[in-house]
C-alpha cells in the first residue's frame, strides 16, 4: 500500500481485525483477514477434494488430480515410514494440502480485484502452531509406542563408547530444534518471497514516479524479474509445503521405527 508515495514491503503481512468475536481469559478472539483466508483455503480444499469423491473405477480428470495428490502423500509416507505410515497419512496429507493451499492463495493476484491478498503461512504464529502440532504428535507417538526406550533415539547405532557423553547431547539439541526449524523454514521462505516481490513492485512504482526514462529503464527489468520471481515463488510455495510434510513424515518415522 502506497503511503505518501512509499511502498512498505512489510505492510502486506499485517493481520487486520475484521470483527470481534469473544474473549478467552483476557485475550480477545477476533475474525481477522488471516482467519478469512484460512477459511477460504479450507473451503477451496474441500471443494477440490469433493471432485475426487466420485470414486469411479475409470477416473475423470478432476478425480485423477485429487488422486495424484493423495497418491503423492501416501507414496511418500510409504517410502519414508513403511506400511505403518498409512495411519498417519491423513494428518500429513491435511498438513501438506492446507499449507500448499495457503501458500498458493497468498500468491494469487487478488489485488487486481481490489481484495487484500494475504499469505497466512508467512506468520510465525501459524507455522509455529503447525510445527508444534507435528512435534507433539512425534513425541506422543514415540513415547506411546516405545515408552522410555524412545530416548534411544539420541544414541544412534554405532556410537563409540567414548563419545557417549557427547553424541546424545548433540542429538537432543538437534531434536529439540526441529519444531523451530520446521516453523522458521516455512515462515521465512514465504516472508522473504513476498518481500522480494513487493520490493521489485515498488521499484516499478518509484521508477515511474521518477519520470519516463527512469520508469522504462528500471521498470522493464524489474517487471521481467517480477515475472521470473513469481514463477519461482509458485515453485517455493509447493516446495515448502512438500518440505514441511516430508520432514513431518521423517520425524514420524523416527518416532515409529526409532533408528
Amino acid at each position: 500500500m502506497a503511503d505518501q508515495g512509499k511502498v512498505d514491503p512489510m505492510h502486506q503481512f499485517e493481520v487486520q481485525k475484521m470483527f470481534d468475536m469473544f474473549h478467552v481469559g483476557n485475550h480477545e478472539v477476533a475474525f481477522t483477514t488471516s482467519a478469512m483466508w484460512m477459511v477460504i483455503a479450507g473451503l477451496l480444499l474441500w471443494a477440490f477434494m469433493i471432485g475426487g469423491m466420485k470414486r469411479q473405477l475409470v477416473p475423470g480428470r478432476w478425480q485423477v488430480a485429487v488422486e495424484g495428490f493423495t497418491g503423492f502423500i501416501s507414496g511418500m509416507m510409504n517410502a519414508n515410514i513403511g506400511p505403518e505410515g498409512r495411519k498417519y497419512t491423513p494428518y500429513v496429507f491435511s498438513l501438506f494440502m492446507f499449507i500448499l493451499m495457503l501458500n498458493v492463495i497468498g500468491l494469487m493476484p487478488f489485488g487486481l480485484f481490489g481484495l487484500h491478498p494475504f499469505t497466512v503461512t508467512s506468520h510465525f504464529a501459524i507455522t509455529g502452531f503447525l510445527a508444534i502440532l507435528s512435534f507433539s504428535i512425534v513425541l506422543i507417538v514415540g513415547f506411546w509406542r516405545h515408552g522410555l526406550h524412545f530416548f534411544s533415539l539420541f544414541v544412534p547405532h554405532g556410537t563409540p563408547w567414548w563419545l557417549l557423553w557427547l553424541i546424545p547431547v548433540i542429538e537432543l539439541v538437534s531434536f529439540l530444534v526441529r519444531p523451530f526449524s520446521l516453523a522458521l523454514r516455512l515462515f521465512v521462505a514465504m516472508t522473504a518471497g513476498h518481500v522480494l516481490m513487493k520490493v521489485f513492485a515498488s521499484f516499478i512504482i518509484d521508477g515511474i514516479a521518477a519520470g519516463p526514462a527512469v520508469g522504462l529503464g528500471v521498470g522493464i527489468p524489474s517487471m521481467a524479474l517480477m515475472v521470473g520471481i513469481s514463477g519461482l515463488e509458485l515453485l517455493v510455495a509447493g516446495i515448502q509445503a512438500y518440505v514441511f510434510a516430508l520432514l513431518t513424515s521423517l520425524y514420524l518415522n523416527d518416532a515409529i521405527n526409532l533408528h
Binding site: 485475550h27 477476533a30 481477522t32 469433493i50 475426487g52 470414486r55 491423513p90 504464529a125 502452531f129 503447525l130
Partner: peptide, 29 residues
Amino acid sequence: WYAASQIFWVLLTFGFVFFVIGRGMLPKI
C-alpha cells in the same frame, strides 16, 4: 487479540481440514 485469534482460527480451520478432509475424504479416495 493477535495470538489468540491466529491460534483459534488455525485450530478451527486445520481441524476442519484434518477431520473432514484428512479423516473423512482421504480414506475413501
